[in-house]
Structures are given as C-alpha cells and as structure tokens.
Design a protein around this nucleic acid. Sequence first.
DNA 1: ACAAAAAGTTAGCCTGGACTAATTCTGTGC
DNA 2: GCACAGAATTAGTCCAGGCTAACTTTTTGT
Lengths: 217, 217
Amino acid sequence: MFSEAVENYLTEILRLEEHAGRGAVSPSALADRLAVARPSVTGMLQRLADDDLVRYAPYRGVRLTRRGRRTARQMLRRHRLVETFLVRALGMPADRVHDEAHRWEHALSDDAVDRLDRWLGRPEADPHGTPIPAAPPSRGQRRLATLAAGVRATVTMVASQGPDHAAYLRSLGLAPGAVVTVTERRPFQGPVTLTIGDHSWIVGPEVTEYVSVREET
Amino acid sequence: MFSEAVENYLTEILRLEEHAGRGAVSPSALADRLAVARPSVTGMLQRLADDDLVRYAPYRGVRLTRRGRRTARQMLRRHRLVETFLVRALGMPADRVHDEAHRWEHALSDDAVDRLDRWLGRPEADPHGTPIPAAPPSRGQRRLATLAAGVRATVTMVASQGPDHAAYLRSLGLAPGAVVTVTERRPFQGPVTLTIGDHSWIVGPEVTEYVSVREET
DNA sequence: ACAAAAAGTTAGCCTGGACTAATTCTGTGC
DNA sequence: GCACAGAATTAGTCCAGGCTAACTTTTTGT
Ligand SMILES: [Mn+2]
Ligand SMILES: [Mn+2]
Ligand SMILES: [Mn+2]
Ligand SMILES: [Mn+2]
C-alpha cells in the first residue's frame, strides 16, 4: 500500500507524538530518529500532507491525520508482534530484535500478521512490556481475495479502478449489499469462481482485490 | 547489502538458469518473470555486470558470476525456508506462501535465517518438495558484530573503509590472525569491549561490522 | 528589544529503477 | 542470400527519496 519510507515516517511520527505528549512533532526530531537530513523530512512531510496522512503547516510542526494514525498504529502493531515472535520463538536477544523487526514490519501481509498474532496467543505486550496496539476494528471486513471458499459474504465496498472497471464489476452484480460466495478458488492466485444470486462468474484478481466483503453471521 | 530489486533479478536469473538447463538466460524471459518492461531489464543487467554479479554480452543473454550465484542461492534458501515456515508454523495455504516469502526474503538478517532454519529442524526441502540450498560454507566465519561474548576467535578478514579506518583497526591490533575475545557487549548496539592480546578496547560498530572472525575450535 | 543561535525551508542536484518510443540486431523461411 | 518477425538495445522521461548549500523564520539569552 505505502512505501517503506512512508511507513517509517508515519510510525516515527506516532512514536514521537506518544512520547512527547501533546503538541506537534518537530521535523528535527524526526530527522534524528530516521537518520536523514532535515530537508529530506520537509520534502516528505509535504508529500504526506498531500496524501492526507499528516497535517503540516510550515514552521509549525506536523501531526498525524486519522488516516495517518491508523496506518502508523498498524505498523507499531506489526513491529511489536514481530519483536515478540523473534524473542519468543527464535530466541533472539532482546537488544537485537528492534532493527530486525524494523525491516520485517514492511514485508508482512495483513493475513500473516494475523496468523502470527494467533500463533503467539494474541499477546498484549511486546518483550519490553510495551502494549501491542489492537488489530483495527475491521468488523469482519476483508478483500474478496481473502474470503474462504464456501462462505457467504456481503459486499461492503467496491474500489473501482476507473470507469471500465466499475462497469465490469457492476455487470457482475458486485455492488454494496450483494451477497456473494466463492465457490472455487484455483491455486497460485488462479481464477476464482463467484456465485452472486443465481449467476456464477470466473474472475481474476482485478475483481477480488478491489471488492470488500463482510462474512455473513 | 543489495537492493530488493537487485536481489529479485539475481534470484530470477538463477531460477531460469536451473530450469532451462545450460545456456544463457534471455532478457525477455526475465522481463516476463519479473513483470517489468524489457528495457528495464537491459538497464539493470548493465548495472549488475558493472558490479560483477552477472556476465552480460549485448544480444547474447546473461549468466550469473560466482558472486551473483552465491547471492542468488542465498536468496533461494531464504525464500524456501520462509515458505516452509509459513506453511508449517503459521498454517498458510501453500498457494499463498510464494508472494509472502518474496517479500520476507529481503527483510531477514543472516542471523534470523539461521535461527529460522534451526527452529524448523534444518529442513532439506520446502513445502513443494523443492530442495533448500545449504547455508554458504562459512567455516564459522562471521562478523565480529555477531560474535558471542566470551568466545575466543581469530581475525580472518579486515574490510577497511578507507585509510584512516584501516590505520585505526591496525592500531587496535586487528589484523588477520589476531586472537580476539568480546569481553562485554552493551545492549542496543552499544559499545563492545574487545580483548586483543593483553589490551582491552571499547569499540563501536565501525569496528565490529568490518572485521570478520572465525571462532577458535 | 534585539542579536545570535537554532530550527526549518527552498533550490538544485543525484541515483535507482521503472516506463514508452524509436532503433538495431539476429535468426529463420523461403 | 535476403526480407522480415521478434528480440534486444538506446534514447529520453519520470518519480521517490535521498543529499548539500543557501536562505528564512522562530526562539532564546542578555
Ligand atoms: Mn522496537
Ligand atoms: Mn521499519
Ligand atoms: Mn516460492
Ligand atoms: Mn523477492
């Protein structure tokens, strides 16, 4: 979703916001923590502001937006889960897990994070005792790509990638509220068979990646 | 050490070399596998050749050098160990581990790979049955940075970063053949105390990262 | 109150790694 | 032996994300 650099900036801004209490985060502090020159920070903050990940007024410091904070918290969650794993499973010395986790945190998929969390028994704190942020309140929402076969689900969101794409999705009946079941999933990211109402369609990732669903209860 | 892109190119070249038997690998095949345009491949191959990772003659295809092959094999090892871990430990469906491993493989340190390998019981093959390349024949050689405290080791290599750096290392007595012990290691990449002969020195990563040692038997 | 220091930004540059359009090789069929 | 299809390379562009040098704004100390 975001580049490694963007993820690192957001995470570090959150750490500084939490640490230094209320108030905006200073670019210099960020530059220090990220080990980059100050002008690099200025440039990145401008881009993050354009993408609505931070609110940034020149000479006034920076704060995360709701969107930015959501991403940053997710990164902290990953970071701390990975650290926990490295210590508990791999027996890595506690003073070496941070750098390792700093790289892993960008590589894990949501699914892998979730499995790691389960494997660790849903830990509440990392090896240093720092709390691990909870998983975002997804209310069961997920991409169609990750829906298990045979499970009925309701479409919650269609993130179309342009007019043709939107029209195609509509022609399949994939609109919010539609009920859909994955009836077959071919291995290796192969095509997926969907049942929507009394129609079946064979579709590829351009469909399953951009449609969100919630499992029926 | 290398960028993610470089690691991916080298790994894919090795896969193609192994698959398609003897002969040079064609840039088009590479472009397909890496999902990039052909000119991107040409450009990268030129850089890889400059860095002595491939031998490349225009219009004649490409082959890995010894150096390139060593790196590529290491990546394949990581990839397959990670896939094994994802299936065995996290229970991820076998048809989803490849993409995941493709990202993890770039994030793991040598130490983490080694711990994962041990944790998995030194598996010989990944979940698809494909053999996992062996760890490089390091003969116990490692960076001083990873040497456990209290273990006597012999310096095998000094990778100095310029004349001043070289002189500094020499002044500590760190030359091939010298016997060294880490007597204390402060947490958080803190300073390390070395004993060399009857001298002790407190040094930082600019020493421990660039000196290789072999543990005494 | 104001000068000096510190913090921050702008301007201009660079590298890696992608892309498209245009061009040049190579090998095959006749 | 040659035309042509396909493979590959060159030329030129773009963007992310760094950097240094120079400038501007804010803060601080007297
Ligand atoms: Mn940490
Ligand atoms: Mn990181
Ligand atoms: Mn694989
Ligand atoms: Mn990869």
